[in-house]
Nucleic acid binder design. Structure first.
Lengths: 340, 340
DNA sequence: GAGAGGAATCGAAACGTTTCGATTCGCTTG
DNA sequence: CAAGCGAATCGAAACGTTTCGATTCCTCTC
């Protein structure tokens, strides 16, 4: 129904190739008069080039695929993903690419679904926080689709952008330690995700290296959700010997933990210091505003686009880039109260 | 390079059509033996159907386009958009569609860019909060691309999903009025967006209908941004006769306004009641948590997908659906203090 | 045993582009 | 004036599918 290049050709009694040359301004020249005629006719008929047909022959779509993490529900509500996606979106726009958001890869092992990634619709893909069992990454790697793993597990042979989780956790722990805290707990994230694993490990190492005794009951799982952080803090507060500070593996959990303290009448940072991770926008809105580890997530998103485009062009891309986090000290951490 | 249906056909000495029938299980039957052989060979060769080629001939891509509002920067950080996008994403996944996010339509009037919408990559599109000068919607409408306008201006001939802004604003105003407030201010959004316009109008109407005097200095523009809300509240607080309550056209501005009050030592809700709009997740995290107007944005996103799919299928779709908001009373609103 | 009927399969067109080899034609040059 | 050249244009193949008409061939029936 929409007008095609053929319609123009027929109307003007020229060949389709001539029309194509005229419209694209190449790769061969056409006489100025013909060019003019073609352009006029195209405008007249409301011609729109069909990108699918073009993709078909050029093999390029100027589109990048985004594969969200394998979390089942409401992925797009994760502040982390939102920051990354925003960075990716902005960068993609600048380089004239659109984004395809794959809706059905999360958690699905179905072969049929997996294949939608490499069905020609995208030139490359960015995987957001994939874990090492993510079948889609594995498949993409196997089929040599240009792809970048953003803040995910280190997967053999896949280009990876990651944040130095160890550094971030050490910064947070050092900050609390220097304030005088010795009984420091940790609310961990989903332990099937790389970030969560590394943050937990760095916590353990810090405690051991500084000869701080710590119990299993001080390490809780919060699933990266506010409710998880809330529940975790509740059980920490029920302990006979309470920790004086807690580092959460993301801001959402820290927010939940803060809520638990407020409900139980435990003052923050007076009786309990709380430190978050990620510096999402919500972390600045709480009372008190959260001390948190800033990660340049948006930057990483931008960089992911650059890398994937380089990969598509065949330019060299470093196998691994690590971004350094920094500590943002706000008001949810302070010296512990003297032992009574 | 990747194996195609032809490779399988050649290998097995059958025709491409037979291979196609075998793989798709139709529309014609193939003998069980051949079917088996084809499927085996496909697996063996790592065959992946090329979706672009399929789109080419069927004219369907099982992909829905998303057109963000024409805000220039960091669109994806808007909580409103995030809620809508999440709803759309979930619904699209359920109906086996992927999403393409158009990165370059915002604010761009370039014809070339506009045409990327209707280049065959998507079967239909959802426009998020377009205003009436949005050229992309107009074009899509003109070219009869199935499309839905989500919470945007009413545009002639375009299917629209909207929220009853008047009702929402009236609920908020009535709530404050019943608490005893008479001097009620309004911090408006971007007045080039439909929601902002309607909320402002409903505010004016309520004030007039209830014979409440109000000044131009009580109606401020906050651009839907926290900083805008902050600045607006600052100028309200500088007024010789302060209002006792303010309704903001979204939560972000309410959060900014709250921050301004806290900085100036104005107690909320003691000296100033603040009401938000949208019920984004952040609105529950502030101290005090915001009273706000809940809009079923995620629901609307889901519904947008359903409607656009119906439109694609040729099913009848109502021209206009309105969703009803409700008031969520939390702690940022209370009776005004007695005049001193 | 000729003809009909039906299942299985084939071949080719079509979708809308891009691009490459081939053709036309006017002009220069020896 | 024949040969050669370059610019402009044409025609056709190719990309990987789907699908429709045509063909083959087996079996059943009278």
């Amino acid at each position: 129904m929409p007008t095609s290049i053929k319609d123009i050709a027929k109307l003007l009694n020229v060949s389709v190739s001539t029309v194509s040359y005229a419209i694209n301004g190449g790769p061969r020249t056409v006489s100025p008069e013909v060019r003019e005629k073609v352009l006029d006719a195209a405008r007249e008929l409301g011609y729109r080039p069909n990108r699918v047909a073009k993709s078909m022959v050029t093999g390029r779509s100027r589109t990048i695929g985004i594969v969200p993490p394998e979390i089942v529900e409401d992925v797009l509500l994760s502040p982390y993903l939102q920051l990354a996606l925003n960075g990716i979106f902005n960068a993609a726009g600048k380089s004239h690419h659109d984004l395809v958001l794959f809706t059905r890869l999360a958690g699905s092992g179905h072969e049929e679904v997996l294949s939608t990634i490499l069905d020609g619709r995208v030139d490359g893909a960015v995987f957001i926080a994939p874990n090492s069992t993510n079948r889609a990454v594995l498949l993409a790697k196997e089929l040599r689709i240009p792809c970048i793993s953003l803040a995910g597990s280190e997967i053999d042979g896949v280009h990876t952008l990651s944040v130095a989780n160890e550094t971030g956790m050490r910064l947070a722990m050092r900050h609390l330690f220097d304030l005088g805290h010795r009984r420091i707990a940790h609310i961990a994230g989903r332990l099937d995700m790389q970030d969560a694993i590394e943050r937990l490990r760095a916590y353990s190492e810090f405690m051991t290296n500084n000869r701080l005794a710590y119990h299993d009951s001080w390490v809780l799982k919060g699933q990266f959700h506010p409710d998880g952080g809330y529940a975790a803090m509740k059980s920490l507060l029920a302990l006979p010997v309470r920790p004086t500070a807690v580092v959460c593996a993301n801001d959402d959990m820290a927010i939940g933990a803060l809520r638990a303290c407020q409900e139980m009448g435990v003052s923050v940072p007076g009786e309990m210091s709380i430190c978050g991770f990620d510096m999402t926008s919500a972390s600045g809105l709480t009372i008190p505003p959260l001390t948190t580890v800033f990660q340049p997530i948006a930057d990483m998103g931008r960089h992911a686009v650059k890398s994937v485009l380089d990969l598509i062009e065949g330019n060299p891309v470093p196998k691994h880039i690590t971004f350094e986090p920094t500590l943002v000290v706000r008001s949810s951490t302070a010296c512990p109260m003297m032992e009574s």
